[in-house]
Design a protein around this nucleic acid. Structure first.
Lengths: 127, 127
DNA sequence: CTTGCTTCTGTAGCTGCTACAGGATGCAGG
DNA sequence: CCTGCATCCTGTAGCAGCTACAGAAGCAAG
């Protein structure tokens, strides 16, 4: 049974974030020492790592909740894949948006570099 | 002089957002009618459009503030370009991050599609 | 006069944390 | 045993950039 600081190091999840996850019910409230300090078991550490990896893959907290449920429920691969595919599609969309944005921005910067009278960036924003 | 609803339509900036911009000092408080309703002039409309375009290019509110100042100050092209370049660099970074993310996610989904025993996605999250 | 649209203010909510303040505990050295 | 520092606790507020109310008031047409 480890205190929150050690768990934070082991899982690379911020202390405040661990407490936050407890507050929103993403991890179960761990037992406490006599003086009221949290004491985490191996299972909690596993779950926190699971959460961190899912977050690193960009899943929302709500998605993480579902993934945890799927994992606990024996691991329904079809549902899991569907969730991941949906998320992947959103990532693709964001990528497309960001690429458009980059193109537009790069064009303006380029126009700006080639000089001229009025600043092309400010000009584009104004008209 | 137009009321906020008309301005919202003309600029395609949400009514609530216009009021929000006024609150944070991004647009100056317009004069009011006798009954206290905002009345916007052509200049306000221009500024709101300017802001919308800058926001669509992904500039932060603070950046927009600077862009407005640059525009008002005669349009220093060097400074404007620098701002835009910095922003462009951030966009590129975000793109790189998102591409990494997509790769990882796509790999998992693919592994999942080819079937097998344990769900590869849940497995990856757990280990 | 009534109906229904617009606008007003002020406040709370969203996501996912992060950063305090102000207090209590735990542990190691002297 | 005492001191001092690290760790932990709770509760609240802040970040970005809006959006969504509630509850009141004005305005215009029929």
């Amino acid at each position: 049974m480890l205190p929150i600081g050690a768990v934070s190091e082991k899982t690379r999840v911020n202390i405040e974030t661990i407490r936050y996850y407890e507050r929103i019910g993403l991890v179960p409230p761990p037992p406490r020492s006599q003086s009221g300090r949290r004491l985490f078991a191996q299972d909690d550490i596993r779950r926190l790592r699971f959460i961190r990896r899912a977050r690193e893959l960009g899943f929302s907290i709500e998605d993480v909740r579902r993934l945890i449920a799927l994992d606990a429920g024996g691991g329904d691969c079809d549902e899991t894949r569907e969730l991941a595919q949906k998320h992947l599609a959103q990532v693709q969309e964001k990528l497309a948006d960001l690429r458009r944005l980059r193109r537009n921005l790069a064009q303006l910067v380029e126009a700006c570099e080639s000089g001229g009278g009025e600043c092309p960036i400010l000009d584009a924003l104004a008209h």
